[in-house]
Write a protein that binds this DNA or RNA. Structure first.
Lengths: 215, 215
DNA sequence: GACTGTGAATAAGTTCACAGCT
DNA sequence: AGCTGTGAACTTATTCACAGTC
């Protein structure tokens, strides 16, 4: 359906635009220019126009963008117009915290199943979400049409878990285990490696260097 | 001391090299070539050589890099040869999980103080780390020479907390609150915005698109 | 007059290709 | 012969600049 390849950098900015649009909607702002969005997001107005133009001409020249229409478009583009269901594997500290965080905050992407090997955890619920044994991954994921996986296992089992998830039909993985998952290409992988964040920030904490405002 | 500006992309790869070097050291490997490092890290060998060359000529032509020497160099470059002390602000679910994660895993960067406004939490300890009231930020940070801040507060207070940290002399901030912190330039900021990660991954979970192996 | 959409220019980062040590 | 260090080519992403529309 789409012609050209959209840069991941663009995809990563879309939820930021969406967040601002939601705030604007709450404040009953009907129309917004790319220049105003630039002020509110910290990106340049050209960048915003270019990002949005990848998906169509949503704006009106001389006027700007309709807040509610653009919000709908972004939700549709990101696939957030339907509920996105996720499964989390690894019910440790981080997994539990992420589940609580997700359930309480989020309506768009919803953790609907947790998997763990520890018999003491299986059968219980975390913030209302049931913990299943890892053997059930394939069944539960298929039954519930889960499309996203979150890995919060130790590094040693992350690769194996990723394979299970991919085989079960998962399309996107958010990996918190401190390993770089082998790039399959049937699945989008995003690694959040906290150790790496700590260690690379140490460079700036220690040195005289300044800079990076990064996500 | 250093001539040119080192790309943040390079800084982010250094801890990955370091991780591999530690594994090699454990396996008693003494020398490694950039080609071998490439296999083990997933980056190209030219990239690795170029990254390392920013900081000096650590390798030996025709031979490779000394594992232990390169490890020492990287630790020094990243400032991990000295203990890096960090303070965490916001003792909620995520803050607590991060503290546990950090204390149990990490020797390089160490959370030594937690701040929270909730009187029920102040005075207690989390995984052995004491919780202080937010008013004490400036004193505690200066007394303990804390150089890194971790923000796990709600979005509404993140900006204010960041200012307090910067005024107290913090050099690097890891921000988990769902707001983009205003770029001061006296401090390095890295944002980990979980909502953004979920929402941008939804694009790949829903669509027919494949791809990004990203950190 | 104001603001979008976009080709052209620039900047940043990565890969190529090879000269230079050991 | 083998592997590093690095200028040059290339690729990708961002910024500039302006024509086009309301």
């Amino acid at each position: 359906m789409r012609r050209i390849r959209i840069p991941d950098a663009t995809i990563r900015r879309l939820p930021i635009y969406l967040r601002v649009l939601r705030e604007l909607e709450d404040d009953d702002v009907a129309v917004i220019s790319s220049a105003d969005l630039a002020v509110r997001t910290g990106f340049s107005s050209e960048q915003i126009r270019k990002d949005l133009a990848y998906f169509g001409a949503f704006g009106v020249r001389g006027v700007g963008y309709s807040v509610s229409q653009l919000e709908d478009q972004l939700r549709r583009i990101l696939g957030l117009d339907k509920e996105v269901r996720a499964a989390l594997v690894g019910a440790g500290n981080l997994g539990t915290a992420l589940t609580r965080y997700n359930v309480n905050r989020h309506k768009d992407v919803k953790i609907v199943a947790i998997f763990d090997n520890d018999p003491a955890k299986v059968g219980k619920t975390i913030e209302g979400v049931r913990v299943y044994p890892v053997e059930d991954i394939a069944d539960i994921i298929r039954e519930n049409e889960i499309k996203m996986g979150i890995i919060t296992t130790p590094a040693s089992s992350a690769e194996k878990v990723a394979e299970l998830l991919v085989r079960a039909g998962i399309r996107a993985i958010l990996n918190f285990a401190p390993v770089k998952l082998g790039s399959t290409d049937a699945v989008a992988v995003r690694n959040i490696d906290l150790t790496l964040e700590f260690e690379s920030l140490a460079y700036y904490a220690a040195g005289e260097e300044k800079r990076p405002e990064t996500s």
